[in-house]
Structures are given as structure tokens and as C-alpha cells.
Write a protein that binds this DNA or RNA. Structure first.
Lengths: 208, 208
DNA sequence: ATTCTTACTTACTAGTAGGTAAGTTGTCAA
DNA sequence: TTGACAACTTACCTACTAGTAAGTAAGAAT
């Protein structure tokens, strides 16, 4: 249920260690805010060694998103496997973001969304896919909640899912300059509160 | 009520035209995604001429935020001056963001929030101030709405204001990779719907 | 008429970016 | 024991980065 890399051990493959460092640098400084030289210096190897594992920044970026998305997908499967109720699933989902922010990082794909216009095409595709996959998972959870009666929201579950992603990404984005994870927590809690049925009147369940 | 620069006329001061171009480049590509050379090429002048007006990228960045924040503050005053009801004020506030996104741009300060760790100190301060000023305005509007009974929300108006900023910034951030302003509109509409009193039961008004 | 000021340009700098070619070292399999 | 491969390093390249120094042309002020 942890989405941030538990720093791959020293003995782990170089390729993975390169991803660890590059991932953190992108999450903190953005894709245009770090260089091969930064990664090489931190690992105590040469830039050329990085190029051996990842021919260029574009390929490194793709590998970064791919691994991050896989880790995220695994975390979502873990949430499903716990068999908690729908509100708890949503809270766990928000907790994924909180875990990233706790390490003073932005969501990798949120950061890359900001850098989107400067990204090579394969990275763009991968970023959008990440948001789509999150959307699909959330949609499913929202629909379950609506049919169970544990959630209440208006409009399509698709729109509601997109709203959740937007709010959590935005809360991370804005909380970081304040260095205040509480700011994120408050937004996340408020978001969940608007969805759980207990705080609602007898309005009709979600259409679509 | 327009927050994006109406492209300063050709005869306008060079300093302002530099800001126009740099502003767009930052909103589209990020602070680390453009160079003095980009701005100079687009204006048909030399890089050295840019340095005459803005000694360095740090000073240019400061001027960018200062002008953007002033324009935003003016737009907020314009909303106040219209004397609309509170829900309309919030809708107009969201419309400010929608106008920026319509030009395929990210909010300047939202973009700079992503670049935050790489920014010089004076720019950091100015970015945070921008969010603070927005927060103060929203807080005031929210409190007015709560006392009038036109709005309903739980928790402090401060938290609610921060939530609004986060959601709108996040919706812009995520909508841009999809090239789909509708995605933003849906999130904004849903956000406002959770605040206006009509969709609520008889829960107590906001505390604090 | 001359000096000052504004708004530049030309020509340059040092440093960094991403990237490559060719060689080195260690491991293992035939 | 050789030779193939993986995982590098050394040494380099070109393009671009922000930034500067010195000069210039046009107008305003004295």
C-alpha cells in the first residue's frame, strides 16, 4: 500500500537504483528540473553509465511512469483485497497520495501533467493512461458505493471519479509550497465527506 | 474579468511585451521549460535586450507573478463590484480559471507551484502570497454565503477556501493533458454544487 | 552643440545539457 | 583459454543555458 519507492537496496540492479533517484528528482523538481548529471552524481557513476541503461531522457521517463503506474495499480489491488467498505477504500486511496506528499514529493504523473507540453509523445501517452487507470478504478468503487447506498453523489460516476483525481492532485500541488501536509489532509477529508452518504439528505442516487 | 493577458499591443512597452511572451511560455511549458532565447526569438530581439529589461530569469519571474497576481486581484474586485449573489461570485471565480484553461494554459502560479523547489526565494514567496490572497477573498465570500444561507459547508471557511483553490488548480492540471476544457467544467460545476445550499439537508451552518 | 539616457545590438563568456564512440573490466560458458 | 557478454569508464562532442562587456543609434535635456 506504499506507492513511493522504498529506496531499492544498494545491492539491487543499477537500472532500478537509477529509477529510484530519477523518480525522486522528477517528483521534486519536475522533468525539466533535473539532468542525467544530477542522477549520475548522486549514484557516484558517470552519465555514460546512465545512457547504457536508458539511452535517453525520453526512455528513462517512460520507464519511470511505467514503474510508478505499476506500483500504483498494485496498491489499488491491495486496497481491493482488504475487502473494506467503500468509504474506507476511498480513504485508503487518498492515503496513497498522502504517503507521497509526506515525502515532500508531488505525484509523479501530476508533476508530469504540468510538464506535459514539453514531454516526448510516449511519455504523454503514459501519463494520460495513468489518470485513466485511476479513473476506471475509482469509477468502479463509486458505483459500488452508490448501489450499496454507502455513497451519494450527483451526476455520472465518471465525472465524480475525475473530480476526485483532480482534487487530490490539486491539493498535493498547492500543499507542497506550504510544506504543510495538513493542508492536503483537510482537502482530502472534505472531499470524502461530500461523498459519503451519512452527510446527505434523501436525494436520489447517482444517475448513469 | 479576464485574467489572461490581452496580448499587449505592438506599440506597448517592450517590458510588457516580454512579460506577455514569457507568461505564456511559463504557463504552457513551466519555468524550467523556456529560455531567454525562446522569448527573444519570438519577439525578434536579442537575448541581451531581455537582460536590459529584466537582469535575470529570477527578476523576470518575479515581475511575471507580480503582474499576474495584480490582474487576478483586479478580477476579484470586478466580481465584487458586480454585486451578484454569492453562488454567482463563486461561479465567476471558477470562470477566471476556465478562461485561462481555454487558452490551453495552466494557472501561472499553479505551474510555478509544480516548479516550486527550483524557484529562487523571491518567486517562492510571491507564489505563496498569490494563493493566500485567493484564499482570503474566497474565505470572505464563503462566510458571506454561510451567513446569508446561500451556501452550506462543514468546517472552517478557511479550509473550504483552500479546498476550492486546490480543486480548481488540480482540475486545470489534469484537464490540460486531455486537451479537454469540459473536464475542468465538470469538476468546477460539481465543486460548486457541493457548496450551494439548495442541494443540502438541514445540517447546521458552518462553524468558525 | 554637447552630453545624457534609453533601448537596444554584436560578440563573447563559462557552464551545463543530452548524447556518443571507443575502450576497460569482470564473469561465465564452451 | 578464449571469447562473448554485461556493465561500466574515459574522453569527447555539439547545442544550448544564463549572463556580460562594449558599443551604437535616436532622442531629450542643458
Amino acid at each position: 500500500m506504499e506507492v513511493t519507492a522504498r529506496q531499492t537496496s544498494n545491492t539491487a540492479g543499477s537500472a532500478a537504483r537509477i529509477l529510484d533517484v530519477a523518480e525522486r528528482l522528477v517528483q521534486v523538481r519536475g522533468f525539466n528540473g533535473f539532468s542525467y548529471a544530477d542522477v549520475a552524481a548522486e549514484l557516484g557513476v558517470t552519465k555514460a553509465s546512465l545512457h547504457y541503461h536508458y539511452p535517453g531522457k525520453a526512455e528513462l521517463g517512460e520507464a519511470l511512469i511505467k514503474r510508478y503506474a505499476a506500483r500504483f495499480a498494485e496498491a489499488l489491488r491491495a486496497i481491493d483485497a482488504e475487502g473494506s467498505d467503500v468509504p474506507a477504500k476511498l480513504a485508503a486511496y487518498a492515503g496513497l497520495y498522502a504517503g507521497v506528499l509526506r515525502e515532500q514529493r508531488m505525484c509523479l504523473c501530476g508533476m508530469l501533467a504540468a510538464d506535459y507540453e514539453t514531454l516526448p509523445a510516449p511519455m504523454r501517452t503514459a501519463v494520460v493512461r495513468f489518470f485513466d487507470e485511476n479513473g476506471v478504478w475509482l469509477e468502479r468503487v463509486l458505483e459500488q458505493g452508490a448501489s450499496e447506498g454507502t455513497l451519494h453523489y450527483e451526476g455520472s460516476s465518471r465525472d465524480a471519479a475525475q473530480m476526485i483525481i483532480s482534487t487530490l492532485e490539486g491539493a498535493m500541488l498547492v500543499a507542497r509550497p506550504y510544506g504543510d501536509p495538513e493542508r492536503f489532509q483537510a482537502a482530502a477529508a472534505r472531499l470524502l465527506a461530500t461523498l459519503v452518504a451519512s452527510s446527505q439528505d434523501g436525494a436520489p442516487p447517482a444517475s448513469q
